[in-house]
Computed example of a mutant assay.
Amino acid sequence: MMVSRGEDVKKISVIVPAYNVEAFLEKCVTSIIQQTYNNLEIILIDDGSTDNTGVLCDQIAREDSRIVVLHKENGGLSDARNAGLDVCTGEYISFIDSDDYIEPDMYECMMEEMEDERVSLVAVGFIVTEADGRTRNMGAQLRKRLSKEEAFMNLFEEEEMFPSSVNKLYRRQLFENLRFKKGMINEDTEIIPKLLHICDTIVILNRAMYHYVLRKGSITQSEFAIRDYEGIVVYATAVEVCRLHYPEVLPYAAYYELSRIYETYVRLAKSENHHSFWKQEIILRFNIALKTVNCLKWKRIRNKYGRELQIYSVAVIIGYSSMYRLMMIKRENRG
């Protein structure tokens, strides 16, 4: 069903940062233009592209009056999104990455939930396309209507909320006093806990509607980069928000942070260039040790994640590689 523009149909501002994506931008914008909910303001931000992205933005804009183009110096994803937030006029806000695309009725489904004025945020699942073309769905099996506390628990435990900005529709008011931190790695993970805290009701739809595309040529799993290490600081935001406002959820926030730091350590340990990051490895192992001890003070975390906490403890004492070799030897002896 096509939802047409009119005085009683509220507008969605769709913010699309674009940097050197001339090969993907048209597919992305086409998926927005063809939405069944069509009262849209589509803001394309050319973030100082060095290819033909800026020219393509202007060409596309001439084909649809709903499209606005901003050209700016390169400032990164957060800065580009903030530029869109500063000029958008819609009652609702959405972010789309310029090399992704969305299902035709995504905004219509989201806006049906927004008819309830208590709903501040609506999230959908992802359709992930791997670099080899295979696809998989990620998201909730059932529609969920959550309080703030329940949304935090979902983020930490069920992981259907996803610490991502792009699969969600927001009421404009959420961004009145909030912006993405410029220059921050994993900026979505940093801002999502702040957004959840100022929401009323959150809805997660049991439909995968956002196409997240993994491209060939991205950093491979065999390589570790300093940005992987620097990106772990964002998980502390969720811990701090819960410490201040949701003490019942704090243990799960602390374990969430610990598990993500451990995942980063494992990526480093398994990487081909791990010798280049020996200082970062020492710091990661020290942080994991401290945060494991912290998590052990909560009985519910010990009961639920006792085995994982034991693994973390062994890994930081003898090192992940040594632990992995011992596990393989033990498995061979059993065989």
Results as ranks from 00 to 15, higher is better:
77 L>H: 00
96 I>Q: 14
128 V>K: 12
222 S>H: 12
192 I>C: 02
101 Y>S: 07
40 L>C: 08
116 D>K: 09
277 F>K: 06
278 W>I: 12
325 R>E: 14
157 E>D: 04
205 L>H: 02
204 I>H: 00
319 G>P: 14
86 D>E: 15
299 K>W: 02
287 N>C: 14
3 V>E: 11
128 V>E: 12
252 Y>H: 12
250 L>K: 07
198 I>A: 00
74 N>S: 10
323 M>P: 06
21 V>Q: 09
35 Q>L: 06
290 L>C: 15
230 E>N: 13
135 T>W: 02
249 V>W: 00
295 C>A: 11
302 R>D: 09
243 R>D: 08
226 I>N: 10
136 R>D: 00
152 F>L: 06
161 M>K: 00
35 Q>E: 11
83 A>Y: 10
86 D>Q: 14
2 M>T: 11
3 V>L: 08
120 S>C: 00
146 L>A: 04
151 A>S: 10
77 L>W: 04
118 R>L: 08
193 P>E: 04
223 E>R: 15
105 D>A: 09
66 R>M: 07
184 M>H: 03
297 K>R: 15
192 I>T: 06
107 Y>M: 09
112 E>C: 01
156 F>V: 02
300 R>S: 11
50 T>P: 01
179 R>E: 01
204 I>D: 04
311 I>L: 15
180 F>H: 05
180 F>A: 01
23 A>K: 15
184 M>P: 00
279 K>C: 06
17 P>D: 05
4 S>Y: 10
307 R>G: 09
333 N>I: 13
142 L>T: 14
242 C>A: 05
290 L>H: 12
207 R>D: 10
267 R>A: 14
129 T>N: 10
316 V>Y: 13
283 I>F: 12
5 R>I: 07
226 I>T: 08
143 R>E: 11
328 M>N: 11
180 F>V: 01
1 M>I: 06
7 E>C: 02
268 L>A: 08
15 I>T: 07
218 S>Q: 14
283 I>A: 13
330 K>Q: 10
262 Y>K: 05
300 R>K: 12
54 G>M: 06
288 I>P: 14
11 K>N: 00
8 D>P: 00
51 D>S: 07
111 M>P: 01
186 N>Q: 11
63 E>H: 09
66 R>I: 09
246 Y>P: 04
189 T>K: 05
190 E>V: 05
161 M>Y: 04
57 C>I: 07
146 L>R: 03
128 V>A: 01
9 V>A: 05
138 M>K: 12
218 S>G: 13
165 S>H: 03
34 Q>G: 02
281 E>Q: 15
130 E>N: 14
214 L>I: 12
25 L>P: 03
304 K>S: 13
224 F>W: 08
136 R>G: 00
81 R>E: 07
274 H>R: 15
227 R>F: 10
95 F>L: 05
128 V>F: 12
210 Y>A: 03
